[in-house]
């Protein structure tokens, strides 16, 4: 997702109109469902019901199938994401080097579970499987930034840095 995105934006008529425009090339093409969903998610960072209905209508795919794809792939989300998106790698290497301790710390300090967003909309936390940087494990990413060999102290610093931005 590019920096230009408005991930924490409220969802409204404007966003729907933007999605509608983006879906134009996929009109009547059920086979382009995943691509279309990517485009639609880029608009607000998540796919609320209205956005999925729009995709269903435009591509001529049953809504049950649209939601089936959205709920199948972890890349799609139906919940709004935070201003900063934290991903904790729990692939094998990161896991054995303490990823679960980092997750516990995040759950404690932010009071949210993976998949959720803090009440103030500042952070969302998700779990990923292997970012391909196993030598640096445990790895945490915030938005586009990658942090390696993260421990509890380092995570504290990271959180305080982004809670001001």
């Amino acid at each position: 997702m590019s920096h230009g995105c408005s991930c924490h934006a409220q969802f409204g008529r404007e966003q729907l109109e933007e999605i509608e425009k983006l879906l134009e090339p996929y009109s009547g093409q059920p086979g382009s469902l995943i691509q279309a969903l990517h485009k639609a998610q880029n608009v607000a960072g998540y796919l609320p019901r209205e956005a999925q209905v729009l995709v269903a209508e435009k591509l001529n795919v049953p809504l049950t199938r649209v939601y089936g794809v959205v709920s199948f792939y972890s890349l799609f989300t139906t919940k709004p994401k935070g201003r900063h998106k934290i991903h904790v790698c729990t692939g094998t290497a990161c896991y054995v080097r303490g990823a679960s301790r980092l997750l516990n710390q995040l759950e404690d300090q932010l009071q949210i579970k993976p998949g959720d967003t803090t009440k103030d909309g500042q952070f969302s936390v998700d779990v990923v499987r292997c970012l391909g940087a196993c030598g640096l494990g445990p790895v945490v990413t915030v938005d586009e930034d990658v942090y390696g060999r993260v421990n509890n102290g380092k995570l504290d610093d990271i959180l305080s840095k982004y809670s001001r931005e």
Binding site: P62, L63, T64, R65, Y67, G68, S71, F72
Partner: peptide
């Protein structure tokens, strides 16, 4: 009608 389909994974 497509009232039902497989959801989640």
């Amino acid at each position: 009608v497509s009232a039902i389909a497989p959801q989640e994974r």
